[in-house]
Design a binder for these strands. Structure first.
Length: 595
RNA sequence: GGUCCAGUAGCUCAGUUGGAUAGAGCAGCAGCCUUCUAAGCUGCGGGUCGUGGGUUCGAAUCCCGCCUGGAUCACCA
C-alpha cells in the first residue's frame, strides 16, 4: 500500500527535518480531489506544530523530501495547506498487474478466531413476509457476506417464532372457517393461507369487541373478554400442556408456512446455517432467572413476579417472569443468547432487528452483564430503520403492507416489460430470458434497499415503483454486460491482451481514475465490515460502474491503434468486471453476461 | 414527560478518523445512436446542510440549547 509507505517516509522526514519523533498514523493522507493535480494529498495543517513554520513552506519541504526519497512519487504541488502528490504511472500499473491476477482481490483470508453469530429474519409463522422483512433479510445476509469477505467466520442463524398467541389466532380461525382448506387443495402458498386466517381472526375479533362495547363494556375489558380471544388463550394453554390434537394442527399449519417461507427465501437468495425454533427454546431463560434470584440480582414481588431493577442505570424495572411463572419475551431472549453462546462461543452475537427494539436489546445486554456473563459485551444489535410507505408505516392488520412475494414478482415483471420495450432479448431462449428478468428484477430490488444506510428509515413509493435507470442495480448490471460484450468482441477479433507489455505505458486520466477506484476496493470492504453497512459497497459499485461507462464512451477500446494501450484497457475492463462481480456478490446481486 | 434515532436540492439518497468551491440519481430543459449494447453519455438550472450558539487554522461532520419528525418506555412478541 502506497499510503503506508508515504506515512513511513513522512515520519522520517519529520524526524530529520524537524527533529521530532512521531507515529506514522498521525499523517492524514487522502485522495486528491479531481479538480486538483495529483493522486494523494497530505494535509499539513496538523503538522505545523512540528515544523513551526507556515503551511506552505512546510508542505514544500515535505513534498521535496517525498519526491527525493520515494521513486513512486513523481511530483508534488502545494495549494494552501494541502500537499498534493503525483504518483507514478509505473506504480499504478504494477499494482494493477499483481492485483488483477488475484482471484480474491479485496477479500481477506479467513482468520482463525471465534465466529460471529448473526441472527436475522426471525419471522412469525402467522403471516407472510413483507417489505420490512425483505430489508431485514437482505441486510442480514449481506452483512454476513461482508464479514466473511473481511476474514471473519460467520454463522447465520434464524430464530423462528413458531409459537404463541398469534399462532393460536390463525389456528382458531382456520378451525372455524377453513372447511379443510390446505395449500395442497387450494394451490395457495402456505404462508399466505395461514396469514389470511390470521386476518380473518382479527376482523371477527374486532367485531366482537365492538359488539361488547355497544353493550356497555369499556374497550380494554372487551378486548380481554371477547369469545374469540378467550378461545385463542385456551388453545395456547392446551398447546403448552402438550395437547395432542392442538399440537398436531399446529405442526401441520406451521409446515405449510415453512414451505411458503422457504420459497420466498429461495427466490430472494438468502439462507441460514442454523435455524432455532422458539417452541424449543422458549423455556430456556428460566434457569438464568433463577441464577439471578440466587445471586440477589433479581427480586420477586409479592404477587410472585420476578423483576430486574435497572433504575440505577437510568432505565426502568424489567419484568422477567409473570406472576404465574410463565416467561416473557425478555426471558426467552436471555435463554437463546445463552444457548447461542454455548453452541458457538462467538466473538460477537449480532441481532439484525428493527430499531423499534433498541430498548429491548439494550436491556438484554445489561441484564446479562449483571448476571456476570462477560460474553455479553459481544452482543450487538444491528438496528435498522423501518420501510415506510408514502402514507406512513406498514401495518399487517390494516392491509397496508407490501408483500415480499408480490414485490419480487412485480420487479421481475417490470424487468420483462422494460426489456421488451427496449427490444432486447430477441435472440434469447425462454429459459435464458426468464433467468435474466429474475436477475434484473431482484437486482433492482436488492440494490434499492441495500444502497441506503441501514440506520435510516427509508421510503418506498409503490406508485413510482423501483427505477431501472440511474443509480440502480440494473445500471450496474448493464455496465457489466457491456464490459463482457467488449471482451467477447476482442476475443472474436483475435485480440489477446495477455501478450502485450503494458509496463511502460503512461495512463490517461480516465484510465487512472478507474484504476485508483479499483485500488480502493479492499479498503471499501474492510470499512463496510467495520460499520456493518452494505450501503458503502453499493455506492462504491455505482461509482465504479459510472466511471467505467464514462471511459467506455470517451475511449473506443477496440478501435485503439496502439496495441499495448488497447491491451491495458481490455485488461482494465476485465478487472473492473471482476471487482464488480465480487462487490455486487456481497449484496447478493448477480451480474449478467448480456442484457 | 424520560430515553434513543433522524433532519443535506422539488423528490429519493451519498458525503470515510473534522479538510480544499457540499455530490449522485429522479423529475425539468438542451444536445448525442451509419462508431465496442442509448437500461448509456454530455451540458444547464436547482442548497442559509432544520435552527441558534460554542470548540479551531478549518464544521454537514464534534459539544450545548431549541424546533420538527419517528421509535420506545406492556404480566405483547
Amino acid at each position: 500500500m502506497i499510503e503506508s509507505k508515504l506515512a513511513e517516509s513522512l515520519q522520517n522526514a519529520v524526524n530529520t527535518l524537524y527533529n521530532q519523533e512521531v507515529s506514522p498514523d498521525i499523517f492524514q493522507i487522502q485522495k486528491t480531489r479531481p479538480e486538483f493535480e495529483g493522486d494523494l494529498t497530505v494535509v499539513v495543517f496538523p503538522l505545523l506544530h512540528l515544523s513551526h513554520k507556515a503551511p506552505e513552506p512546510t508542505a514544500n519541504e515535505l513534498g521535496q523530501w517525498l519526491t527525493e526519497q520515494l521513486n513512486e512519487v513523481k511530483a508534488y504541488n502545494v495549494i494552501k495547506g494541502f500537499l498534493n502528490l503525483e504518483i507514478t504511472d509505473a506504480y499504478w500499473i504494477s499494482f494493477f498487474k499483481t492485483a488483477a491476477g488475484e482471484k480474491n482481490f479485496g477479500f481477506k483470508p479467513q482468520q482463525d478466531e471465534p465466529p460471529v453469530v448473526i441472527e436475522y429474519s426471525s419471522p412469525n409463522t402467522n403471516k407472510p413476509l413483507h417489505l420490512g422483512h425483505v430489508r431485514n433479510n437482505l441486510l442480514g445476509w449481506s452483512v454476513a457476506e461482508i464479514l466473511k469477505a473481511s476474514g471473519k467466520r460467520v454463522v447465520k442463524v434464524n430464530l423462528v417464532n413458531d409459537r404463541g398467541i398469534h399462532i393460536c389466532k390463525s389456528m382458531i380461525a382456520w378451525q372455524k372457517w377453513a372447511n379443510g382448506k390446505t395449500p395442497k387443495n387450494t394451490g395457495q402458498k402456505g404462508d399466505k393461507l395461514v396469514g389470511n386466517f390470521y386476518v380473518l381472526f382479527d376482523k371477527a375479533y374486532k367485531k366482537e369487541i365492538a359488539r361488547l362495547m355497544e353493550q356497555g363494556m369499556d374497550e380494554k375489558e372487551a378486548a380481554q373478554k371477547a369469545p374469540l380471544i378467550l378461545k385463542a388463550k385456551e388453545m395456547l394453554v392446551k398447546w403448552e400442556a402438550g395437547d395432542e390434537e392442538v399440537r398436531q394442527m399446529w405442526k401441520e399449519m406451521n409446515s405449510w408456512v415453512y414451505a411458503g417461507f422457504d420459497a420466498t427465501y429461495k427466490r430472494m437468495g438468502i439462507d441460514f446455517d442454523k435455524i432455532y425454533y422458539e417452541s424449543e427454546t422458549y423455556l430456556l431463560g428460566k434457569a438464568l432467572v433463577n441464577e439471578g434470584l440466587e445471586k440477589g440480582i433479581f427480586y420477586r414481588k409479592q404477587d410472585g413476579s420476578v423483576w430486574c431493577d435497572l433504575t440505577d442505570e437510568g432505565l426502568d424495572e424489567k419484568l422477567l417472569l409473570r406472576a404465574d411463572g410463565t416467561s416473557v419475551y425478555m426471558t426467552q431472549d436471555l435463554g437463546t443468547a445463552q444457548l447461542r453462546y454455548n453452541d458457538y462461543h462467538p466473538q460477537k452475537l449480532m441481532y439484525v432487528v428493527g430499531n423499534e427494539q433498541n430498548y429491548h436489546f439494550d436491556v438484554l445486554q445489561r441484564i446479562l452483564k449483571k448476571l456476570g456473563k462477560s460474553w455479553a459485551d459481544g452482543i450487538y444489535h444491528l438496528s435498522y430503520g423501518m420501510v415506510e410507505l408514502p402514507n406512513g408505516k406498514m401495518k399487517s392488520r390494516e392491509g397496508t403492507v407490501v408483500d415480499a412475494d408480490d414485490m419480487m414478482e412485480e420487479m421481475a415483471a417490470t424487468a420483462r416489460k422494460t426489456s421488451k420495450e427496449l427490444g432486447k432479448f430477441d435472440d434469447f431462449t425462454p429459459e435464458e430470458s426468464f433467468k435474466l428478468f429474475e436477475m434484473i428484477g431482484l437486482g433492482a430490488l436488492k440494490y434499492f434497499i441495500l444502497k441506503v444506510d441501514p440506520k435510516k428509515t427509508m421510503l418506498f413509493n409503490p406508485e413510482e415503483s423501483i427505477d431501472f435507470n440511474g443509480n440502480t442495480g440494473s445500471f450496474i448490471q448493464y455496465t457489466h454486460a457491456r464490459i463482457r460484450s467488449v471482451i467477447r468482441k476482442a476475443v472474436t477479433t483475435g485480440i489477446s491482451p495477455e501478450t502485450e507489455d503494458i509496463a511502460g505505458l503512461s495512463l490517461e486520466k480516465k484510465e487512472k481514475t478507474l484504476l485508483k477506484l479499483l485500488y480502493d476496493f479492499p479498503q471499501v470492504v474492510s470499512a463496510a465490515a467495520e460499520s456493518y453497512s452494505p450501503a458503502q459497497i453499493a455506492n462504491y459499485c455505482y461509482e465504479l460502474a459510472k466511471e467505467y461507462n464514462q471511459l467506455y464512451h470517451d475511449l473506443s477500446i477496440l478501435k485503439e491503434g496502439n496495441t499495448s494501450k488497447r491491451a491495458l484497457r481490455l485488461m482494465l475492463s476485465g478487472f473492473t468486471s471482476q471487482v464488480l462481480c465480487s462487490a455486487m456478490g456481497l449484496l447478493g446481486i448477480q451480474l449478467p453476461e448480456r442484457m
